[in-house]
Amino acid sequence: MAEPRFVVDPELTPALTGELVECWAEVVNAGGAVGFVPPVTPGDILETATATFAACDTTRDNPDHLLAGFDREGQVACWLILGDGKSWLRAHWRWVLRVMVHPKHQGQGYGTLLMRAADDAARDLGVEALHLTVRGGTGTEGFYARLGYTEVGRIPRSIRLAPGDDRDEIYMVKHL
């Protein structure tokens, strides 16, 4: 496996935005817990994606940062958002949002590499801690724990996927 090439705040061209949205839909449809429930199309995600990427528009001095990993063909392999806390009281930490690895790259270590690249990007921003949430029932909290994240809270049944299918929202933190 060739390691992905990571870029913080790549230019959000229409082509790149399209790839990111396509990746997002593929991840959801493969069972990824990134804000939607399958089946979805890129069109189903577009409104949320537009707002997500607008907050990462560095030409407008927005506070969020897109971290994208590209495979050896130059295609989006994985990505996440380092989200600002929107308060000077929390300027020393970021939320890790929308963590995803394209299904064709899953199981190859890209998720670990993406999260390590996020640590490096956060340190470069002067960030001292990263926070994230995971959907209970997916087992992803074990992945994040292996990367140094600690569970600090849980809200039972706060995520409703469908009637009768409620999940916990698990809060995790990592001090850099």
Score class of each variant (00 low, 15 high):
P103Q: 13
R160M: 14
T112H: 14
E26L: 09
N29A: 14
V8F: 02
I155H: 12
R94Y: 02
A15D: 15
A55Y: 00
C56Q: 05
A2N: 14
P10R: 04
A117P: 06
A15S: 14
V27F: 03
T112G: 14
V27L: 05
C56T: 08
M115G: 13
D61F: 14
G148I: 05
T52C: 08
M172H: 05
P39Q: 01
V27P: 11
G111T: 07
L66E: 04
D119F: 15
T48V: 15
G126W: 13
A2C: 12
T17E: 12
A33E: 10
V96E: 00
A129G: 12
P63L: 12
E11L: 06
A33C: 10
E3L: 11
A30I: 02
T138P: 08
L82N: 03
R123H: 13
T41V: 01
T150F: 03
A55I: 03
F6D: 05
L20D: 14
D168T: 11
G107D: 13
A117G: 07
L67I: 02
G142M: 01
R154H: 14
V37N: 04
W93D: 06
Y149S: 08
E169Q: 15
P4V: 00
A162K: 00
A33L: 09
V34Q: 02
G35Y: 01
A15H: 06
Q106R: 13
N29S: 13
P14M: 06
D84Q: 01
E11G: 04
W95K: 03
G43T: 04
K86F: 02
A49I: 09
V76H: 04
P10W: 07
C78Y: 03
H105Y: 15
P14V: 10
D64E: 10
A117K: 08
V8T: 13
A121H: 09
G32M: 03
S158K: 15
L161E: 12
L125Y: 09
A55R: 04
T133A: 06
P63Y: 00
T41A: 06
V40Y: 00
P4N: 01
V99P: 08
G142V: 00
V127P: 13
T17G: 05
F70L: 02
G111A: 10
A91K: 06
A49R: 10
V96F: 00
T138K: 09
T133P: 07
M1R: 08
V37S: 05
H175I: 14
A145G: 09
F36E: 02
F70M: 01
E47N: 10
R116E: 09
C23P: 10
D84M: 04
I81R: 07
E73Q: 15
Y149C: 09
V34R: 00
E22L: 12
L66W: 00
L114K: 08
L80F: 09
F6R: 07
I170C: 08
